Simulated assay, not measured.
Amino acid sequence: MATNISIIYKHLLWADSLLALIRSESALHISHKIHFSKLSGLNRKHIDLIILEATYPNAELVNQVIQLKESGFPVIVIGYHLDNEFIELLLVKGLDGFVLKTCGQANLFEAIHNVSQGNKYFCAPIAESLSKRLYNNTDERRLTTREKEVLLGLVCLKTTSCIARQLNISEATVRTHRKNIMSKFGSKNYIGLLRYACREGLLQTPDEQFCVGCSNRKCISTN
């Protein structure tokens, strides 16, 4: 029996390309191709699996995953490499699979096969980064006092030279701290650093919404 798949997309060209790829496999069938703004009304009886296009790591993506999982759909996200903390948050919300847009056809079909069988699937780069984060020693990941000071400057959008002057250290030392901070928490960009700083209460205005999944009172907003 063919696996009935629905594609939820933001970019039509991407959806059409994915549809053509999936149709090359006889055991798979596309039930729907739906724009993300029209999620309501999906019929669980006619859909075995959802493939969701991800563009940016934001509250919208998390809310989409939550909505689909609450409706009982297995969900595979296809997107660009997100920082580890964001992927972990999606896992907590019940995400079944994640495949990078840089992966190939074999990875996509393997994800579909695994998730349709009730298993989880994460492509190799995602699985590797999550594994490193999971098994890293907590003490090795803990920030030093100086690293916290540099982190606060970074998320407040201060320049390297400004941070160096304020902390009375060289710009090279600031860059070294920045590299170490990103390495400890698997963050690829400032968004990941910002979420971590907010969650740990390192920001000067912790009641503002800086990140997805934060325990601060405004972070439950979908804005």
Rank of each mutant, 00 (worst) to 15 (best):
H177A: 06
T176Q: 05
L157V: 15
R175I: 00
L157G: 09
I163D: 05
L152G: 09
K184Y: 00
L157E: 11
H177D: 14
T159L: 03
H177Y: 00
A164L: 04
C156L: 15
N168T: 12
C162E: 09
T160H: 03
I169D: 04
H177T: 13
R178A: 03
T173H: 09
N168I: 10
T176G: 06
M182T: 13
A164P: 07
A172W: 02
N180P: 11
M182R: 15
M182P: 07
R175Y: 00
K184T: 02
I169H: 02
A164S: 06
S170Q: 08
A164I: 05
C156R: 15
E171C: 04
V155M: 01
Q166P: 02
L154F: 07
E171G: 01
K184N: 02
I163Y: 06
L152E: 09
V155R: 04
N180W: 13
K179C: 14
V174W: 01
Q166L: 08
M182H: 06
R165H: 07
R175P: 01
S170M: 01
S161Y: 03
E171K: 08
I163M: 10
K184S: 00
N180Q: 15
I163E: 09
V174S: 04
L167E: 13
T173I: 14
K179R: 15
L154A: 13
